[in-house]
Every structure is written in C-alpha cells, then in structure tokens.
Design a protein around this nucleic acid. Sequence first.
DNA 1: GCGTGTTGCTACAATAATTGTAGCAAGGAA
DNA 2: TTCCTTGCTACAATTATTGTAGCAACACGC
Lengths: 112, 112
Amino acid sequence: MAKQTGSGERRVRGSRTGRPIMALLDLLGRRWALRILWELRAEPLTSRALRTACDEASPTVLQVRLTELREAGFVELGDGGGYGLTPVGRELCETFMPLHRFAERWRSKSGA
Amino acid sequence: MAKQTGSGERRVRGSRTGRPIMALLDLLGRRWALRILWELRAEPLTSRALRTACDEASPTVLQVRLTELREAGFVELGDGGGYGLTPVGRELCETFMPLHRFAERWRSKSGA
DNA sequence: GCGTGTTGCTACAATAATTGTAGCAAGGAA
DNA sequence: TTCCTTGCTACAATTATTGTAGCAACACGC
C-alpha cells in the first residue's frame, strides 16, 4: 500500500533500500498502475469512465491503485468528481510517454 | 505469458485491444518486470546476480518474468550464460531511464 | 575418476494480489 | 418521489507471488 514510515521514507514491497527509483518502479510495477496513468494523460476521467478505458478492470484493483497513486501524489480526485493527474503526475506521465512511439516500433520489429 | 496468436498480434491479459502500447504497459506492469530491465541496464547479469540485485526476489517470478521479457525480445540469454538486454531492450530501457531523475525529484517533493 | 562450485531452472505449499459480480450511500436532476 | 450518476466496498473464486528447497548440466581443480 506504499505506506510511509515516520520520516517520510517510502518502504514498499520489493524495495527495501529506500532508493526512490526502486519505490517508483515497484509502485508502477503493479497491475493497472501504468495503465491508469496512461488513460488519465489527456483528461480527467470519472471512476466509471476510467474503468471503461481500462478494459473493464475490476473496480477493486482500480480503487486500490487509485488510492496508492493518490498517496504517491500522482493522481487526485477533483472537487466535482473525476480523477485527474496532479502536476507531478503529469510530469511522470510525460516521462514515460516516449513509450508510445517505442511500442509501435517494437511491434513492427517483433510482432508480425 | 504474452502469448502470440497466429498473426503476431500480441494478446495479453488486460489488453484485448491489441494496441502495442497496451501490451507493453501490461507486460511492464507485472512485478519485477521494470526492475529486471533496470538492473540489466548497465551490464549482463547471471540469474543469481540478478536475483541478488532484485532484493532476493523469488526465482520463480524472476524466471517467469525473464521468459516473458525474452519472448518480448527485450532480454536474451548470452552464450556463456548471463542475462543481458537486446538492442531493443536497451532501447526500451533508455526510454524510461529519465524515470531515475524524476524519482529523485519526486521524493524531495512528496517524501520528507 | 572424484568432489566443489557454478550456471539456468523447477517443484511445492503458503501467502498475497487480482478478478468478477454485486451492491452500498450520497448527490443531482426531473 | 424516482431515476441516474458519482466514488467506493464486500465477497468468494481465481490467479500471481513468495520462500524454500532442490534438480541436471557444466566447468574447475585434483
């Protein structure tokens, strides 16, 4: 759940070193985490719309992931409802946005 | 397991659209997948060394992930033993390498 | 040959995460 | 009120992951 210990040190499953890159890789390495950020890249989505965008993933995981991503400061729930990226979240999203173009090239190389 | 159907279309759990970015996000969104790529970024590692680098993750998952990453064409097993990145894998690794610097900034903002 | 150590890899049971379905309370509009 | 949406939760079934132990194959020194 990406709990935080007293000093603000993140101690996440699978990364006991405390190095932020490890905590980040662990957080993003949970199911639907990357996908959620990806689907929110353009505009905020309601929980239902997000669920639809994520191939009808079960609301249980989505809710857990959203909570984690909110605790991490990447996602926020707007006043009028709907989940959106925080400035930091948008920054993160842009960081791995080049993955899109890579994925296209990847398929053309390894796929058909 | 990132099986491939006849036409080379990847059909991965959680991404039934076939869009390569979804397949990629799903593949990378499995435990230790990102971490494995990250640990192999500098040099090839033997399975044991990789296990050590990954906080003694269980060999079961590592083996499964390594198989998936090999099928995806990101990782290969060298002749003399030891897992290393393929050219495509190195390309992918460099794609999300900026995550490192982001993670540092992220901690300084949200952490302590 | 013999041991000793490595390699990649697997079996197994216990635990944790994820799925899929159903449903809740709170709010808004008719 | 009814109808519809919002965010969110309960629950059992399924799947993934963990942790420990161990395998066969290969290379070394002896």
